[in-house]
Design a protein around this nucleic acid. Structure first.
Lengths: 140, 140
DNA sequence: TTAATTTGCGCAACTTTGTTGCATTTATGT
DNA sequence: ACATAAATGCAACAAAGTTGCGCAAATTAA
């Protein structure tokens, strides 16, 4: 399935001036064709048959892709990072929904985070991390 | 400093019908007199001289206090739980601010979380986790 | 096309955060 | 003070993530 996006992934990586290695292309392809944010584990599992990568390589690949802003990291409250490809739709700040049933994480684009958040005086806002938890359509 | 709150902590624990052990009283006292949410590490460090607790005991003490709703857990995106005493002000859902400079976490009571969050149809909301990141007055 | 160089990969070992099982100790009601 | 249920401490384990280093592969230069 996600093989279709290989050329796209490779193009994106080359545009960043980085080496287009099998690992990076594979990782980015998985994330590009994923519907939700994925954990390190899930990505590893997904690549297991076609491209078995070392844990460390996967971590470093993800780290690099985040640095290039091709993907972004999501902290969803269970001490595990999740990763999601940055489509045009996701280049801005956005909230996430985490299903307490199946643990899947999706992006909520409709939630406006660019509003004013009242902070104590002297405090400066940099980023807003909003995770709505609940049950998805399948689990409820 | 936090010795003053020992009797208060003990009272709160007894009200829950739990054993008033030195460990629980110590942990709750630290959190009651803390200005921000604290990590397991910070609490351990804080008790080191007066009441050196086993790591596991501390984890279990915190777990119990959370179950009794005397304290609450905060997930602040760095894979580390933080704990904060539940004053009256904190018994409702509220947001947190995490300083990207000094990593301290404070509670933001003014942010209304009880508003409507637009979710996909079929999705049911359970809980909202909102962390605003930025620089605190000291770090900016 | 080949050689040189830079960059990424894989392995092993380590760290941090948190959990589980079990024997011992302690708080509390009688 | 005594019995007992519950909390503690120890050891071992587990998951997520990081670091160092030699080797291999992707670019670049020749």
């Amino acid at each position: 399935m996600y093989r279709n996006v290989h050329p796209i992934a490779e193009g994106l990586i080359r545009q960043c001036g980085g080496r287009a290695t099998a690992g990076r292309i594979g990782i980015l392809s998985v994330l590009l064709s994923a519907q939700q944010a994925m954990t390190h584990r899930e990505i590893e599992q997904c690549l297991l048959e076609t491209l078995p990568l070392d844990r460390v390589t996967l971590y470093r690949g993800l780290e690099w892709l985040v640095a290039q802003q091709l993907i972004h990291k999501v902290a969803s409250g269970d001490r595990v990072w999740r990763y999601h490809a940055n489509g045009k739709a996701y280049s801005h700040q956005h909230a996430h929904f985490k299903c307490t049933g199946c643990s899947q994480v999706i992006c909520l684009d409709d939630l406006p985070l660019e509003r004013q958040w009242p902070l104590p005086s002297g405090y400066r806002l940099q980023e807003v991390e909003l995770t709505v938890k609940g049950l998805c359509a399948d689990c409820s």
